[in-house]
Amino acid sequence: MARSILHKANTRGHADHGWLDSSHTFSFANYYNPERMQFGALRVFNDDTVAAGRGFDSHPHDNMEIISIPLSGALEHKDNLGNRVITKAGEIQVMSTGTGVFHSEYNASKEEPASFLQIWIYPNKLNVPPRYDQVKLSTGKNHLQQIISPSTEDAGTWIYQDAWLHLGRFDKGVQTTYQLKKEGNGLYIFVIRGSFRINDVQLEERDGLGLEGSTETVLTPLTDDAEVLLIEVPLLIR
C-alpha cells in the first residue's frame, strides 16, 4: 500500500551554533524526535550553512555512507586517508567511512558563507576500508542526473547501499517521472529550490516527502529553476 510522509521545512529540528546553522530533517546531535529517526536507510539529512572561514574540526566517522552536496560556496576537506580537496557547488563528495576515518570540513572562503546538504545513509556492509570520492555534476537542465548508485560501473559515484540519488534543475512545467530502481525501496524527495508538485502533493523550498509503495513518481516543477534531490533507499534496515 502506498504511504507518504511529509516533512515541511519549518518542522525540522534546528541548531544555531553561530558558525554553523543547521536544519535537521531527522534526529541528530541534540535534536531528538522519536518520530523523526530515519526514512529507511536514510538516517541523516542536514541542511547546513557554515560561516566564512569556519568549519568542522577533525572528527571521526565509521560505518556510515556520508554524502555532501555543496549548494553555494565551497568546502575544504582533509582526512587521514591523505585527501585534501576542495568541493564546490556543482560537485559532490562521498565517504564510505567503514572501519573509521577522521576528517575536517571547512568553508574554503574567508568572505562568504557556504551551504551544503549533509546526508548519511546506513551501509549494507559493515567495517569496509574507508574511501573518499568526488564527482562533478553536469550543468544540463530538465532531466534527473544520477549522482549515486550501488554500482561502480554506473553513472555518478557509488556507495555501499542499494541506494540511488538523483539531482535535477527544471524549468516550470517540465514534468518528469521517476521509476524506482529496486522493488521495495522508498523514495525521499527534497526540494532544494522553488516548488514542485509530487504526484498530488505540493512541496515548497526545503520541504521533504517520503514515499513508500510508489514505484512511479511524477514530478512537476511549479517554478522556474526549481531544483530537487531524490534519494531512493531500502526501507527495511536491521
Binding site: 534526529s27 541528530f28 546531535a29 541534540n30 531528538y32 522519536p34 529517526m37 538516517r43 541523516v44 572528527h59 571521526p60 566517522h61 565509521d62 560505518n63 556510515m64 567511512t97 573509521g100 548519511w120 546506513y122 536491521r238
Partner: peptide, 20 residues
Amino acid sequence: RRHYGGGSGLLKNEILYALD
C-alpha cells in the same frame, strides 16, 4: 545496540531511542 557514525552525531539519539 550497534553504534553508527563514529562520533557525536547519532550517539545521544541512539541512547535516548534505545531507552525509549
